[in-house]
Design a protein around this nucleic acid. Structure first.
Lengths: 116, 116
DNA sequence: CACATTCATCGATGTCTATCGATACAGGTC
DNA sequence: GACCTGTATCGATAGACATCGATGAATGTG
């Protein structure tokens, strides 16, 4: 019952329950990744990031080459995940990345510093 | 047709096609995120990260509290996405994070430096 | 060799979701 | 007011996927 990896191969088990994520934490993290787990949403985030300023839906739609309802759907998913913010100006909706969420995402993804 | 965001509101359109991701790039990126878009897979990655050494499936299964076939399924998805590596020792399979993939993931997620 | 154990695959099932066309809603323009 | 335009929502549909039990393959143990 030790933690050595390619173990002596008689018993193999390791109690790694230690610093495990809670069910809720895992679900929250997965929700963020799930929101980014679609090519069109990745492209939306990329477009918003490279734009650097709020972008109108009427610009997003032709850039993505998918129907307007589908764009609206993806934006809603990104917004629900907290990755994107909406800003309404008259008839037009402008979307931009949520800076805090981007920082949070970068933190989550950097697993290189995790220790046992 | 300028890039200012809350524009004068007469025309709103901005040509932001500039540094857009290709279809393939977007799909590849989304595939990585999709692989992480499940609570159990997030927990697997977390367990592997905090273990710091290859972990036996027989340790993962009780730690996750789901059936063994399901664990196997998730591991396969993570492995297909290139996030995880398998190492077989006798009857046992040991899984560990792919360091290069982790670095790549951290790079992808850090959108804070993107410029227009 | 017979048996047990570990893990991957298979088949089935229920749920989720991406996509679109049609429609409703909200602002602006005349 | 009537009309146009940009967005969001609705309803339907096809495809993807998480989950499990059963089975199979590989390896060790008696």
């Amino acid at each position: 019952m030790t933690a050595e990896a390619p173990a002596p191969a008689a018993t193999c088990c390791v109690p790694l329950g230690a610093s495990a994520l809670s069910e809720e934490e895992a679900q929250a993290t997965a929700a963020v990744f799930k929101a980014l787990g679609d090519p069109n949403r990745v492209r939306i985030v990329n477009l918003l990031a490279s734009a650097g300023a709020p972008v109108c839906v009427c610009d997003l739609t032709p850039a993505l080459g998918i129907s307007q309802p589908t764009v609206s759907h993806h934006l809603k998913r990104l917004r629900t995940a907290g990755l994107v913010r909406r800003e309404q100006h008259g008839t037009w909706s402008y979307y931009s990345l949520d800076p805090a969420a981007m920082t949070h995402l970068a933190t989550i993804c950097d697993l290189r510093k995790v220790r046992p």
